[in-house]
Amino acid sequence: MTRLEHRVHELTVGQLAERSGVAVSALHFYEAKGLISSRRTAGNQRRFSRDTLRRVSFIKVAQRVGIPLSEIREALATLPEERTPTAEDWARLSEAWRGDLDARIAQLERLRDDLTECIGCGCLSIRNCALANPYDRLGDEGPGPRRLLVQNGPAARPGRTSEPDAGTRDLEDPCAPSCVPAD
C-alpha cells in the first residue's frame, strides 16, 4: 500500500480507495448519496480532502453495525467541513446511536436464545406449530417470523401489555419454548 505523505492535502479517488480499503465504485456511490464530497480539477478529476479518509472510515464502521446510510448522512452533515473531525465529534455522533444499537443487541440476543426452539412461525416444525401457534394467531400480526421481528419484546406489539394475564398468556408468546412439546 502506498503511504500518504503528510504534506498531501488532497487525494485522488484511487488513493482514497487504496488507503480506505473501499472500492472506487463505492466512493462514487457515497459521493452521489451526499456522504462525502470532492472538488473537480481543470481536467475534471475528483480530488478529496484528506479528512475524507476519516469520513469513509466512519461510514464503514457505521454500516458494519447496521446504521442506515440515511442516518450516516445526517450525522456527517453535522460535522464541520473546514477541519478534520475530532475524537469528540465522533463520540457525539456515536452516542446518538447508542440506544438504537442497544435495542439491536437485545433483539439479537433474543434471536440467539430463541432460535433453536422456534423461528417465530415460519416454524421449524409443522407438527409443533399447530400446538404452539394454533390457528396461526401470529399471522394476524403480519407476514414473516413475528417473534423475531419484534424489537422490544411482547409489549412492543400493538395491543399487547408487558404483564399478560393468565387468560392471554398463550396469545402473548405462542411459540415460547415452554409450550412447545418435545418431538
Results as ranks from 00 to 15, higher is better:
residue 90 W to H: 08
residue 130 A to P: 09
residue 156 A to N: 09
residue 101 L to Y: 13
residue 17 A to Y: 07
residue 111 L to P: 05
residue 80 P to E: 14
residue 51 D to S: 06
residue 59 I to N: 04
residue 92 R to Y: 00
residue 9 H to F: 04
residue 100 D to T: 13
residue 167 G to S: 08
residue 17 A to R: 03
residue 98 R to L: 15
residue 180 V to E: 11
residue 136 D to S: 13
residue 137 R to Q: 08
residue 134 P to W: 11
residue 1 M to P: 04
residue 17 A to E: 12
residue 18 E to C: 02
residue 70 S to M: 02
residue 31 E to D: 11
residue 62 A to L: 02
residue 83 R to I: 09
residue 32 A to P: 04
residue 146 R to F: 12
residue 71 E to A: 07
residue 43 G to W: 01
residue 41 T to V: 05
residue 69 L to V: 09
residue 34 G to R: 00
residue 97 W to C: 07
residue 181 P to L: 10
residue 99 G to P: 11
residue 136 D to I: 03
residue 47 R to P: 06
residue 169 R to V: 15
residue 159 G to N: 06
residue 57 S to C: 09
residue 7 R to H: 13
residue 132 A to M: 04
residue 6 H to K: 10
residue 63 Q to D: 06
residue 100 D to R: 03
residue 18 E to S: 06
residue 27 L to S: 07
residue 47 R to Q: 11
residue 139 G to E: 08
residue 51 D to N: 03
residue 131 L to P: 00
residue 30 Y to R: 01
residue 29 F to Q: 10
residue 6 H to G: 13
residue 87 A to C: 01
residue 130 A to F: 05
residue 105 I to D: 08
residue 36 I to A: 01
residue 99 G to Q: 06
residue 61 V to R: 04
residue 23 A to K: 12
residue 87 A to F: 03
residue 43 G to I: 03
residue 18 E to I: 05
residue 39 R to M: 09
residue 92 R to H: 13
residue 63 Q to W: 04
residue 66 G to L: 01
residue 113 D to V: 00
residue 172 E to I: 03
residue 146 R to A: 14
residue 101 L to K: 04
